[in-house]
């Protein structure tokens, strides 16, 4: 059984990678979780998981014949597939190969989280939303972030990918989050699964090369992420069918 989620925001800097790993760690208590850094242009996951020294990354898989298993690392109770940061690796990476990677990983996990690129101007940023079963939208309570989150939803809806939930992140104590949540819920098709407070712990966790649930498991941020993961109802599908769907998705090469 497997369900694939794209974790997307549209706007950068909202804490998408932090959220992806936090949800992944929280879900790993109950499920086999695999997290993939699908942001091939601005890879982040490796810094959050202490993997910045590894030799093989998703760039190598997308850019040559390296098997995906070589880029899978067991970390913090999850399987983590980081992306590299080199310009040459980015240039060699063929985003269309992502579907094959997802198909392979889907055969051997319960929950697949695709940490998507911010911005929606590139095919590589949109593909995770196209390929996933559902999307978790990470949003800050600001106008730019909400605007881009609504755009993410439009992309998802157009490709038949439903919204699993909306996660408010970096919520300031002064934000009237009740009013903002209520107003936002009129536009989003999925439930609001959490409100993560703005605290120093995620930044400290990143500096330590750990997900926040590993670095500060007792923190209010970690608690809020665990609550959000609990509200994310997993709907596992048949892994063979899902793998086949990804593999056979007709995405011809661009001319």
């Amino acid at each position: 059984m497997v369900e694939a989620f794209a974790v997307a925001s549209g706007k950068g800097g909202v804490g998408k990678t932090t959220s992806t790993l936090a949800l992944g760690m929280a879900l790993s208590d109950r499920y086999d979780v695999t997290v993939v850094d699908a942001d091939t242009g601005m890879a982040n996951l490796l810094f959050h998981t202490g993997l910045d020294g590894v030799e093989t990354t998703l760039h190598d898989v997308l850019g040559s014949d390296v098997p995906v298993s070589d880029a899978v690392y067991e970390r913090f109770g999850m399987r983590v597939v980081p992306c590299g940061t080199s310009l040459s690796g980015f240039r060699r990476a063929d985003p269309d190969r992502l579907r094959g990677v997802v198909a392979t990983l889907a055969r051997d996990t319960d929950v697949l989280l695709l940490d998507s690129a911010p911005a929606l101007g590139a095919k590589s940023a949109v593909l995770p939303v196209v390929l996933a079963d559902r999307v978790v939208v990470v949003v800050q309570p600001t106008i730019p972030s909400l605007s881009d989150a609504l755009k993410v939803q439009e992309y998802a809806t157009a490709y038949g990918t439903s919204i699993a939930g909306v996660l408010f992140n970096r919520v300031q104590p002064t934000d009237p989050i009740e009013r903002i949540s209520e107003a936002a819920s009129r536009y989003f098709d999925g439930p609001i699964i959490g409100r993560i407070p703005e605290r120093p712990s995620p930044q400290a966790a990143r500096r330590a090369g750990k997900p926040v649930l590993a670095h500060a498991p007792e923190s209010s941020v970690a608690d809020a992420y665990r609550g959000a993961a609990d509200r994310l109802e997993i709907r596992p599908g048949d892994e063979t069918a899902i793998a086949d769907r990804f593999q056979s998705a007709v995405i011809p090469e661009q001319p």
């Binding site: 309570p141 600001t142 106008i143 909400l146 605007s147 609504l150 755009k151 439009e154 992309y155 157009a158 300031q172 002064t174 934000d175 009237p176 009013r179 903002i180 107003a183 936002a184 009129r186 536009y187």
Partner: peptide, 25 residues
């Protein structure tokens, strides 16, 4: 941080949101 009243005003401006959604579509 954005002026939060402005955020609520943005979300309550359904015409603006609809226009954003339509353009994105």
């Amino acid at each position: 941080p954005t002026n939060t009243d402005t955020v609520v005003s943005f979300l309550e401006d359904s015409d603006r949101i609809r226009a954003l959604q339509e353009t994105t579509r």
